[in-house]
């Protein structure tokens, strides 16, 4: 390779390596890949809504089938589940403390009667930390619905938000009203 040839290569390399990065500018005209949460729904690559069914979130426990064997409490690696006495019930029921739970789903795996399940709801908002320890029941209980935001409710669009802003505290529970 002659020295002149090498210099030509170096020059073209320099020009190429100065111009190529500007290709990134074509993303100016494309749709961004972030979403405005919670106004937009989080979808996977095929446009199916997330979280999926397998997502490990807040527990539910079917008291009809639960035999209160306590296996969930024994397998729990975080010691988050405790079997407690419940008024009006003969059996002990598992109580989950969400300050500890690591959402591994082992309780669901070992449950011999298939009564314990992890739902795909994961948003819990409340000022009182005591509400984060509760007994999972068949369905989310009334008082829990105040602070557990069901995932399906997260998927509202902008119109709903504006509507909700126009009718303040119409849907909120008693706690929301007392704030101001």
């Amino acid at each position: 390779m002659s020295p002149g040839h090498r210099q030509v290569i170096m020059m073209t390399d320099f020009v190429k390596k100065t111009i190529r990065p500007f290709r990134a500018l074509r993303f100016l005209a494309r749709k961004p890949h972030t979403i405005i949460s919670p106004h937009e729904q989080h979808n996977d690559i095929e446009g199916e809504p997330l979280p999926t069914e397998r997502y490990r979130g807040i527990h539910i426990n079917d008291w009809e089938t639960c035999i209160s064997c306590g296996l969930c409490a024994r397998i729990c690696p975080c010691d988050a589940i405790e079997m407690v006495d419940v008024e009006g019930e003969q059996k002990k029921r598992p109580e989950v403390s969400y300050g500890r739970c690591c959402f591994c789903g082992f309780c669901e795996d070992v449950c011999p009667r298939d009564s314990m399940h992890l739902t795909s709801n994961y948003v819990m908002i409340d000022k009182n930390s005591e509400t984060f320890t509760f007994l999972p029941e068949n369905d989310l209980k009334e008082f829990q619905k105040e602070y557990i935001v069901e995932t399906s409710q997260l998927r509202y669009n902008d119109k709903d938000v504006k509507k909700a802003e126009k009718e303040p505290s119409a849907k909120k529970g008693g706690k929301g009203k007392k704030k101001k």
């Binding site: 500018l25 993303f27 961004p32 405005i36």
Partner: peptide
Amino acid sequence: KITARIHRRRG
């Protein structure tokens, strides 16, 4: 805003 768009964010 422009930087965000190149980043593929909304900004």
